[in-house]
């Protein structure tokens, strides 16, 4: 396996008395899909927020390509190649689908000296946005208002926005949540495809999908890592069945 791109050591985050993420270490390598599962409130989203710079850790460190990036703000992490999608759809609703994705592409493609140029005449972000929309299957919806898309399409848009920033690391927080079976099938295939040339962290509820697409699975319970291993190992673990899989059924 290739060396880790994004790596954390002893990551801990407290909210008052609650330890939402407790001493978590993991490594994301390019070409691998790392799934994080666990019951509601296990700290999965908080972990994603720590990795993306959205939250600063109470303790622990974060490394990107071996360099410390602990405490970097979210925008800087994104610029450095860490893209993400959100569990709760987080888009610019009144703007067009195309503009949502174009803004994502613009963040990477526009040096400050070009910011005064007419946006309508700047081709590079437009083209990158188009490509990202095509990739998630939203090419036909580009002109629509983002807020007018169906729930499933908004989930796709989330991913297109993350893709348009041309990230090396993708942190996807329950991208399949609320999608119909057909849409999630398409998206699962896309995830597999993305994992070929990205380091992907997938927080997901749907066990079928996780065991199908993941190279490695980390099980979190109450902020801690219960177990981390290949899908086969996790599926076979009695501890995981007790702590989580048993609950789900």
């Amino acid at each position: 396996m290739s060396p880790p791109v994004l790596q954390c050591f002893g990551l801990t985050r407290r909210f008052g008395g609650l330890v939402a993420v407790d001493d978590v270490s993991l490594a994301l390598a390019s070409g691998a899909l790392h799934a994080v599962i666990g019951p509601n409130g296990a700290g999965k989203s908080t972990l994603a927020n720590l990795l993306s710079g959205e939250l600063t850790p109470t303790s622990g460190t974060l490394q990107l390509d071996g360099e410390s990036v602990t405490g970097w703000p979210a925008w800087r992490m994104a610029r450095a190649g860490v893209g993400r999608s959100f569990q709760r759809t987080n888009i610019m609703r009144p703007l067009s689908v195309q503009e949502n994705v174009r803004l994502a592409a613009q963040a990477r493609l526009t040096p400050p000296t070009r910011l005064w140029r007419n946006a309508a005449k700047e081709a590079a972000p437009q083209i990158a946005a188009r490509a990202a929309l095509e990739r998630v299957g939203l090419g036909a919806e580009a002109a629509r208002k983002a807020g007018a898309l169906s729930h499933g399409q908004q989930r796709q848009l989330e991913i297109a926005m993350a893709l348009a920033t041309a990230p090396r690391v993708l942190l996807l927080d329950e991208p399949l949540a609320g999608m119909g079976p057909e849409e999630s099938e398409t998206l699962a295939a896309l995830l597999r495809d993305l994992a070929r040339d990205h380091a992907v962290l997938l927080v997901e509820h749907d066990m079928d999908v996780v065991f199908r697409v993941a190279d490695q699975v980390t099980v979190m319970v109450e902020g801690r890592v219960l177990l981390s291993g290949t899908p086969a190992v996790v599926r076979g673990s009695a501890a995981v069945r007790d702590a989580y899989l048993g609950q789900a059924t």
Binding site: E54, W75, M161
Partner: peptide
């Protein structure tokens, strides 16, 4: 969201 996309 703009921050998460890489805008300062």
């Amino acid at each position: 969201r703009m921050q998460a996309l890489g805008h300062n």
